[in-house]
Design a protein around this nucleic acid. Sequence first.
DNA 1: CCGAGTTGCTAAAACGTATTAGCATGACCA
DNA 2: TGGTCATGCTAATACGTTTTAGCAACTCGG
Lengths: 355, 355
Amino acid sequence: MANKRVTLADVAAAAGVAPATASLVLADRGFELRISEAAQIKVRQAASLLGYRPNAVSQGLRTGTTSTIGFISDNIATSQLAGNTIKGALEAARSQGFMLFIAETDGDAATELATIHAMMDRQVDGIILATMFTRYHEPPAIVDEGIPTILLNNLPNSRRPLDAVVPDEITAGWTAADYMIEAGHQKIHLLGAGPLPSDVPPDSIAAVQRLQGIQERLSAEGLVPLSYHPMPDWIPVNGRAAMEAVLAQDPFPEAIICFNDRVALGAYQVLQEHGLRIPDDVSVVSFDDFDIAGWMRPGLTTIAIPHRAMGRMAVELLLARIRDIGGSDQSPGAVHRVPMPLHVRESVRGQNDDI
Amino acid sequence: MANKRVTLADVAAAAGVAPATASLVLADRGFELRISEAAQIKVRQAASLLGYRPNAVSQGLRTGTTSTIGFISDNIATSQLAGNTIKGALEAARSQGFMLFIAETDGDAATELATIHAMMDRQVDGIILATMFTRYHEPPAIVDEGIPTILLNNLPNSRRPLDAVVPDEITAGWTAADYMIEAGHQKIHLLGAGPLPSDVPPDSIAAVQRLQGIQERLSAEGLVPLSYHPMPDWIPVNGRAAMEAVLAQDPFPEAIICFNDRVALGAYQVLQEHGLRIPDDVSVVSFDDFDIAGWMRPGLTTIAIPHRAMGRMAVELLLARIRDIGGSDQSPGAVHRVPMPLHVRESVRGQNDDI
DNA sequence: CCGAGTTGCTAAAACGTATTAGCATGACCA
DNA sequence: TGGTCATGCTAATACGTTTTAGCAACTCGG
């Protein structure tokens, strides 16, 4: 019934050698330590015959290293964002033989600290502190001193010796405006932000930087947005209201940049209710590339948040740091900006249609 | 720089007792083993003063138990399903001091086995085998014999001594039809399944059972569906096609049951293009309760998959089994069906509008 | 035939905890 | 005064590895 796991001692006994010998052979240090080829073969055969698998807990205790990393997020369940971020992290970890502990803090600092402790108790080799929306987040002090840590999708307010991985929102904003301009549009309405940084959802790096990128590209052309429509949350109902406001002031708008796909969904609904055709009458560009962007009619052209790539990069940076451990020529505190790819669908008129 | 962790030996030394004494006191076995109150106080003070936290890896090696469970899923990133399932699992685990290893297999059996091994190497106390869609899934033989295991959102083909947690799809189908009937509808079109079990996406328990529940409720009324529209995938584009087919045959349909929200999204689009109003002209009910159900206009009445409750229940069952370990009066092999709640929005006409 | 060097392996300790058996010490009873 | 018993603690071991120091046996040059 309870057939015990086979241990290194079992292998050694079966091979007729001491446990130390078996350990050396299986760690490929046989030649280095002058174990005869014959003995090595015996050990390997015994190991595979018995189906030996080293006990990772014991290795962890002995070596202090567990091939395990902790992934701590404020909110795991928010849309599919979480899924792809974790997927990327899992892929990168798996490819290097690491497992992931995953935990959620609900944004509570005490829970976050307790979770970090619980993971350190389990001797994780490193920690990723993720947020599901790009924002500022001050990690607890404990991560500065001991354990390798990477921030994912967030930045600390103060200067901290921690690497961070965030999407390149400024370039994304630039790209959105550029795509409209290249399509021949000059009169662009903005749904989701005001002209001032304060007109933007608080703590939202995405909002500030998308706006900044858009403004940069427009002003390079001598342009400014035709109208701004700030809103407290980027949700469909606010997108609807903003779109109504646009139409009240400009019954035949030409181009709309929505600050995310849910806002765009609301805008679509209103445009269609008013009999305006996308993209023939009005072009729409958005950000995020949620699943719905592909389901909407016409398909929404939008700039994707590279969740999967970010998850992967965070793990890769962390593993590099773990391997490194001594040589701190890594310049910790670096911010890694991951490109946000434009996903072209059908919501912007062809670039050669007119003008 | 590298200030070592404080160990039990440190605490013992600070308190002026042997490590064994400290261990007993901190395990609350002090009185049982006749440690004087004075000594107990000294130990506790030393522990809290030094900030002692037991090394879980060492405990794991010593006790064979790690307060850790493995959550293995075929696909972690599929919509927000994953998020809520994991959220529920995390909540239940956290409330009992357990951590979760999370891994993804991409549906590959070899990866699944390797992952189970990797987790057993780390001495997890139990394993949850999850799928992101309700379906049949044969877990590897290894889980039968040793480690406590719960199947989440899937059922084995053959009889296995494993508990499973699945949504109660039959009752959900019954509820969908019942809601339509109570609203006074008798002529109901089905988008997403054919009349035969074989007209349904293969392996999809949801399809078979939703259909079964619908048919049961209808036949209790002496009714049958007005039309069936099977499709290989429940995605918006197929929902559009099916809705067009309905209209070709019945230009003024009364009631539509869609087999999921994405199909309903496609149906909405076509209905709106044809100038038909929901719910005034046609009522729509669906399954899943994705986020989009709340974003669509009018809000979609839909029967939710209780992902969070399922995740929570899976962990709770697993922890019960882990605690139990000896007394196998648990009747393993039980299937736990979690109720699927109806989420009423605005896509079905009021029940007293007419009859 | 002796010392030095090489070859091939192993004993032992260590990681940090939990647990069992048992050792002093004093109290109490006969 | 000697034996028994309760009290209060600790030594020692085990969990399964990794790693270092070193032992035994053999070879070889002089």
